[in-house]
């Protein structure tokens, strides 16, 4: 029988959540026994090869590229999980949410005290995805089925959640594994 597939992505995140996934240590071998990894930075597969059981999303949406990837994940995954605070509430990047985009970019590229930018312009290249007006938590863009909070979520949280899902059980985290930091 074919193994179920898992896909992962890091949107506006710091890869901390992916590090936490690797932090399940030797259990990663068991995980490989249970599943195949599809599109993911873990195996560097860039495009979906087929339908996935689970998609793990790290980070919220800060630009149009994030939105595109997230929507693609929604299309390809039966179960989509927001992993980590950034995916759930925007996290650190969402500190810009109260500030108009123009002000953010002006400070970042022109007026900031450490900026060296003789052109005096905000960079604009068609290769650079356009920023959104603010950070959007993933569930504001697509339907999310589960949330695993933490910055990053403890490795045990990820392990327990995945093994529960793979055995068709509901995710039921003990007290010590629900963390927002």
């Amino acid at each position: 029988m074919q193994k179920p597939k898992i896909a992962t992505a890091s949107l506006a995140g710091c890869f901390g959540c992916h590090m936490s996934l690797l932090d399940i240590d030797d259990r990663i071998l068991k995980l490989i026994d249970l599943v195949d990894f599809d599109k993911s930075p873990v195996d560097d597969i860039k495009e979906f090869t087929g339908r996935c059981l689970v998609g793990l999303i790290e980070g919220g949406c800060c630009n149009e590229e994030n939105v595109r990837v997230l929507q693609e994940f929604r299309k390809h995954c039966d179960i989509l999980i927001s992993v980590g605070d950034c995916a759930i509430d925007g996290g650190l990047p969402a500190l810009r949410n109260g500030i108009p985009l123009k002000e953010c970019l002006t400070e970042a590229y022109i007026t900031g005290p450490t900026v060296y930018n003789p052109s005096g312009k905000i960079p604009s290249d068609s290769e650079i995805p356009l920023l959104l007006d603010r950070i959007y938590p993933c569930h504001e863009v697509v339907k999310i089925d589960y949330y695993l909070p933490g910055c990053p979520p403890p490795a045990d949280t990820l392990w327990q959640a995945l093994t529960a899902l793979l055995s068709g059980k509901p995710i039921d985290l003990p007290y010590e594994l629900i963390k927002y930091d």
């Binding site: 605070d85 509430d89 996290g91 650190l92 969402a94 500190l95 949410n97 910055c151 927002y180 930091d181």
Partner: peptide, 10 residues
């Protein structure tokens, strides 16, 4: 705005 990840009270 509860950003627990960098909050002193967390």
């Amino acid at each position: 705005n509860h950003f627990c990840m960098f909050c002193e009270k967390s």
